[in-house]
């Protein structure tokens, strides 16, 4: 049973376009996600998945289009507003992008101290709680260089979670990891989903996408080709091109 506010979208993306030089990378993408929903972006390399995710929090400045958080349009030229918006949209990168000069704890804490202006002691407590949530309490005082890839990615998830995001954007969170480290990160993401986190994730891990997603979005050449429930898109897509891609990728990745 969903209430009216629950079914109103948390985030809507309308007509996002982006070109680099004269090459169009995003050709008008629309997307909307409700609270607690998980949408997974799939598509061939170069489809524009990363560009889309980074456009959503303006790490890449879209040329056109509109983004609304809880119905309010975001104006990226208003710097304060943009910073406030970004706090509410957690971003997970393929290469983790942890701050190399800070410990795991420092990485999680710094947003609370510098951005949320929380008191250091309070921030430390919260940061520690987030690290424990991703199973890294014992590694809190290690530097990124002392952590495995899987641990680094979990720290980066804790760093985003500390700011209480309303949506998380995950850009291939496990594709830079050794196969034996993927599981621990998937487990954390699965727990997030179970806890009701709203997420948009790009991934090539098709089995994981099937298990997790409420909806899969197939993108190619900067546009959404088809979207729908996982089983529909992965096994029985309407569009020829979607079927072709999904057949190839399910053969490779297994179901």
């Amino acid at each position: 049973m969903t209430t009216a506010t629950d079914s109103a979208p948390v985030l809507t993306v309308e007509g996002i376009r982006k070109s680099f030089g004269n090459k169009e990378i995003l050709g008008g993408v629309d997307l909307s996600i409700r609270r607690g929903e998980i949408k997974v972006l799939i598509g061939p390399s170069g489809a524009g998945k990363s560009t889309l995710l980074q456009s959503i929090n303006f790490l890449v400045m879209p040329d056109a289009g509109r983004i609304c958080l809880e119905g309010r349009p975001v104006d990226p030229s208003d710097r304060k507003g943009l910073c406030l918006y970004r706090q509410q949209v957690g971003m997970i990168f393929q290469e983790f992008n942890l701050f190399d000069h800070l410990t795991a704890l420092g990485n999680v804490e710094i947003g609370l101290v510098r951005v949320k202006k929380m008191k250091r002691s309070q921030a430390r407590e919260r940061a520690m709680a987030e690290l424990e949530r991703v199973g890294l309490g014992v590694h809190a005082h290690k530097y990124p260089a002392e952590l495995s890839g899987g641990q680094k990615q979990r720290v980066s998830i804790a760093r985003a979670l500390a700011l209480d995001p309303k949506v998380m954007l995950l850009d291939e969170p496990t594709s830079a990891l050794d196969p034996e480290l993927i599981g621990e990160v998937h487990a954390v993401i699965r727990d997030l989903g179970a806890a009701g986190m709203t997420m948009i994730m790009a991934t090539h891990q098709i089995g994981f996408a099937r298990a997790l997603a409420d909806e899969i979005i197939f993108m190619e050449n900067g546009v959404v080709i088809e979207q729908g429930p996982p089983d529909k898109i992965l096994d029985d897509a309407d569009c020829e091109r979607t079927r072709e891609f999904c057949t190839k990728i399910t053969e490779l990745g297994g179901r």
Binding site: L59, F93, N97, L98, G111, R114
Partner: peptide, 15 residues
Amino acid sequence: GQMKAARAIGMSDAQ
């Protein structure tokens, strides 16, 4: 990526 991650948690460029 360091700059991107900093912006992504809501830091201003100066921060």
